[in-house]
Design a binder for these strands. Structure first.
Lengths: 348, 348
DNA sequence: ATCGATGCATCCAACGTTGTAAACAGCGAG
DNA sequence: CTCGCTGTTTACAACGTTGGATGCATCGAT
């Protein structure tokens, strides 16, 4: 219980600066905020006091006063899935342009955690939410009554429009293009890795649909033994699925994987068994993560415009927050994607 | 300027709940915070009111009142470097156990941004900071006068002890082990990829030192043409460096790369030129990122105990924050690491 | 009846900031 | 000398929350 004469306070406040500079607290606030009408001499004095005390505005207090925090949250399944890590990078960059800080929530793709996020665990702490759900249902979303602006990323949830902005890509047509690319190269037994049994997994469903459409379009019969189901979209799942495909005797001559990590896992299995890629089996991925550009063979894939997605999503949030048009109808934005053919389908 | 009779407010407050439940605002607060002495009947009434209004505590106000935010920041160079993405995941998990949310700052490894972070851009908004700097100098760190508890991750900065907790691994001995592993396999012309010319790059410096020690220990002469410099630690840098090494005629029979992405880039170059790995050239990485486990050949590497690092770092912050021992001496923690030999050195 | 515990609810102040409005100084015009 | 203007500074009240002190019942023991 010792009494300290000086610096009993841990952090200096406006009040301390004001006392030292011999002005009112509001004047200091004005200086800090660059208010125009402050006499040059006063300003200098205040600035000196600020420097001397090493004053920093308390952002929490400012946020409370202003009713916003300058923080937005990005909720993704898992940061060490390269696609999401790269997306997060893009979001952080885009948010920076609006002066926002990004707080990241990992949901592990678990419905329970996703419901928490959407219900607003961070209510009042964040100004807006970018959310890329995996397991969330339309009902969960409908039950939401948090008022924080929300922009959904990735697949659409449910059939009906949700009352939220949404940024995604056309999965069906992208998957169709990828599969068609394989068919155009003369492949006839095109397998798919990445179907999901769970009710969740809109992504898998849509890409499967695109795959089927492409088969139909190429006049190829669908062979259910060529469609491999997975638990998750990790490399290990891809490796397992590929092994199962090879062992099943389905003898594919090409594989369309629902994402790049699955494809890289599959590639591992193929190469370690001495299967030549693409000569014996051509391989196609989805996402265009950096690993795929440096694998051997490099991975043909669909490249979604990640930067565009991030920028659009953040801009949509910004619009909602500016509240110029408080009740604008929810937007449905379809970002572009591009087919990138590399060695895993074309050879060298 | 229309007047709304009901719900003119955007967000209900304690006050609104209190009015609806017919109690005082503090009672509602007590219910929300699980205060023991609230009559069951009152509690139920309040809970109903909360549900009816869909009340959520304003975390900003709570933070202001309590003087802490429940948020810690993790500052890393770049999330789409797999090592940092995986580290971030571990940190988020560890922070979760303390009830903290993690806010991520990307510095791009730029000194200017790193100085901002260390100077406390987020002062008052975060309770603590975990920082993995790349370019920061000892002087920058010494100039810091922000009071937010700081734990440094990665390499130590400068020769003298800083007044901050630090969690790292023993880079020199890890690099030594890796290089020694190559020497033990009979390799004689062991190259290194990842040296840095810039003053920054403590990591590179330490790993280079370990590499040299190992050469000396194995009775191998140091050949400067075998040491390749890079701009950054990305796959592309590794690929370029490997190409340069091959073209230079230095003819290595093994390469110790200062991290896994460099190694994967190098692997790409080797395989695309028909060099057999490990038969012609053995390859060794550092970090044990997931890609390396699924490349072909899979990558021998040093696996730092990332989970341990994250947990320790968060726990150190927690100690500082609990302030039981306000001025505990700065801790220097050396996390463990493990050599994992895979196909890129052992073959199949 | 009186008293002290005990359980429960309320009142007040404070956290550090900023928007609003008002006060004040200086100065040129009437 | 007063008025009004411009520029500069200030006082005050909020933002929504919680810790602490205080008040008010109720109840069992005297």
């Amino acid at each position: 219980m010792e009494t300290q004469l000086y610096s009993a306070r841990v952090q200096p406040r406006l009040k301390d600066v004001a006392e030292l500079a011999g002005v009112s607290i509001k004047t200091v606030s004005n200086v800090v905020n660059g208010y125009q009408f402050v006499k040059q001499e006063t300003r200098t004095r205040v600035e000196q006091a600020i420097a001397e005390l090493n004053y920093r505005p308390n952002l929490t207090a400012r946020n409370l006063r202003q009713g916003r925090s300058g923080v937005i949250a990005l909720a993704v399944p898992d940061l060490d899935i390269p696609y999401f890590a790269e997306l997060a990078t893009n979001v952080i960059t885009a948010a920076d342009r609006h002066g926002w800080t990004v707080l990241i929530d990992q949901t592990q793709g678990e419905r329970a955690k996703e419901r928490l996020v959407v219900a607003g665990i961070r209510a009042h702490l964040i100004d807006g939410l970018l959310f890329s759900p995996l397991a969330l249902t339309a009902a969960d979303l409908a039950a939401r009554d948090d008022r924080t602006p929300l922009v959904l990323l990735g697949e659409r949830i449910g059939r009906e429009r949700t009352p939220y902005d949404h940024v995604g890509i056309d999965n069906v047509s992208a998957a169709l293009q990828g599969t068609a690319h394989l068919a155009a190269l003369g492949r006839r037994r095109i397998a798919a890795i990445g179907a999901r049994r769970a009710a969740s997994g809109a992504t898998a469903r849509l890409r499967l649909r695109g795959y089927r459409k492409a088969l139909a379009g190429a006049g190829l019969a669908e062979d259910p033994t060529l469609v491999s189901h997975v638990e998750a979209f990790h490399r290990a799942d891809g490796a397992r699925a590929m092994a199962a495909l090879l062992d099943s005797g389905a003898s594919p001559d090409a594989v369309f994987c629902f994402n790049d990590t699955l494809a890289l896992g599959a590639l591992r299995t193929l190469l370690s068994r001495g299967v030549r890629v693409p000569d014996d089996i051509a391989l196609f991925g989805f996402d265009d993560i950096e690993d795929g550009r440096f694998s051997t063979p490099s991975l043909s894939t669909i490249a979604p415009d990640r930067q565009g997605i991030a920028q659009t999503a953040v801009d949509l949030l910004a619009e909602r927050l500016s509240a110029a048009v408080p009740e604008r109808a929810p937007q449905e934005v379809c970002a572009s994607h591009e087919l990138i053919a590399r060695e895993s389908t074309l050879g060298r």
